[in-house]
Deep mutational scan, measured.
Amino acid sequence: MQGVVKVNSALNMRSGPGSNYGVIGTLRNNDKVEIIKEVDGAYEIRFNGKVGYASKSYITIVN
């Protein structure tokens, strides 16, 4: 499943599905991501070869 990031500035990509996990990357508006699955209000995603988590509130599914 594919998604597009929709933010005003940037969205943190984290090592786990919550803000208490470390930041492993930054997503920008209109970045395209692969959605692997939904976990606790976040999506597990793949972006630029990395797998991490981002809030589903800022990712629009575009299948």
Score class of each variant (00 low, 15 high):
Glu44Asp: 00
Ser9Phe: 13
Asn12Phe: 11
Ser9Pro: 06
Leu11Val: 15
Ser55Trp: 09
Ser55Phe: 06
Ala54Lys: 00
Ser15Pro: 03
Val51Leu: 11
Lys32Thr: 12
Gly52Met: 03
Ile59Glu: 01
Ile36Arg: 04
Val7Ile: 11
Gly22Thr: 14
Val23Ile: 13
Ser19Leu: 14
Asn30Gln: 08
Val5His: 01
Val33Pro: 01
Arg46Ala: 09
Gly16Lys: 05
Thr60Pro: 03
Gly49Asn: 09
Lys37Val: 05
Val39Asn: 04
Tyr53His: 02
Glu44Arg: 06
Pro17Trp: 06
Lys56Thr: 09
Met13Glu: 02
Gly25Asp: 13
Ser55Thr: 11
Tyr58Leu: 09
Thr26Asp: 04
Val39Pro: 01
Lys6Arg: 13
Glu34Phe: 11
Ser19His: 13
Val51Thr: 12
Phe47Gly: 02
Leu11Trp: 00
Ile59Gln: 00
Leu11Tyr: 03
Met13Leu: 13
Leu11Lys: 11
Gly16Met: 05
Thr60Arg: 12
Asn48Phe: 06
Gly3His: 02
Tyr58Arg: 06
Gly18Leu: 04
Tyr21Val: 05
Tyr58Lys: 08
Val4Trp: 05
Phe47Cys: 04
Ile36Phe: 07
Tyr43Asp: 00
Lys32Leu: 15
Lys56Tyr: 03
Ile36Ser: 03
Asp31Ser: 06
Tyr21Gln: 08
Asn30Met: 10
Thr26Trp: 09
Ile35Arg: 00
Phe47Ser: 04
Gly18Met: 04
Glu34Gly: 04
Gly18Tyr: 04
Asn63Gly: 13
Met13Asp: 02
Asn30Glu: 09
Ser19Arg: 12
Val4Asp: 02
Ala42Asn: 14
Ile61Met: 08
Ser9Gln: 12
Ala10His: 15
Ser57Leu: 14
Asn12Cys: 15
Gly52Ser: 02
Gly25Thr: 10
Ser57Thr: 12
Pro17Phe: 05
Leu11Cys: 15
Arg28Asn: 12
Ala54Cys: 12
Ile59Asp: 01
Val39Gly: 03
Asp31Ile: 03
Val33Ser: 01
Lys6Asp: 04
Val62Tyr: 08
Val23His: 04
Ser15Gln: 07
Ser19Val: 12
Asp31His: 03
Ile61Cys: 08
Met1Gln: 11
Gln2Thr: 13
Asp31Ala: 07
Val5Arg: 01
Val33Arg: 00
Asn30Phe: 08
Asn8Ile: 12
Leu27Met: 06
Asn20His: 14
Asn12Met: 12
Gly16Gln: 06
Gly16His: 08
Pro17Cys: 07
Tyr58Gln: 08
Arg28Trp: 08
Asn30Ala: 07
Lys56His: 04
Met13Tyr: 05
Tyr53Ile: 03
Asn8Leu: 11
Ser15Val: 08
Asn8Gly: 12
Val4Leu: 10
Val4Ile: 14
Asn63Phe: 09
Ser19Met: 13
Ala42His: 15
Val39His: 09
Ser15Tyr: 06
Asn20Cys: 13
Pro17Lys: 04
Ile35Met: 01
Gly25Ala: 15
Asn48Ala: 10
Val5Pro: 01
Ile61Gly: 03
Gly41Leu: 07
Lys32Ser: 09
Tyr53Asn: 01
Ala42Leu: 15
Val62Phe: 08
Gly41Ser: 08
Ile24Leu: 07
Asn8His: 13
Val51Ser: 08
Tyr21Gly: 10
Tyr53Ala: 01
Ile36Ala: 02
Gln2Cys: 15
Ile24Gln: 03
Ile24Trp: 01
Lys56Val: 10
Ile24Pro: 01
Gln2Leu: 14
Ile24Lys: 02
Asn29Tyr: 09
Lys56Ile: 10
Asp31Thr: 08
Asn63Asp: 13
Gly41Cys: 10
Ala10Pro: 13
Thr60Val: 15
Ala42Glu: 14
Val39Asp: 04
Met13Gly: 02
Asn30Ser: 06
Asn12Thr: 11
Val23Asp: 04
Asp40Asn: 13
Ile36His: 03
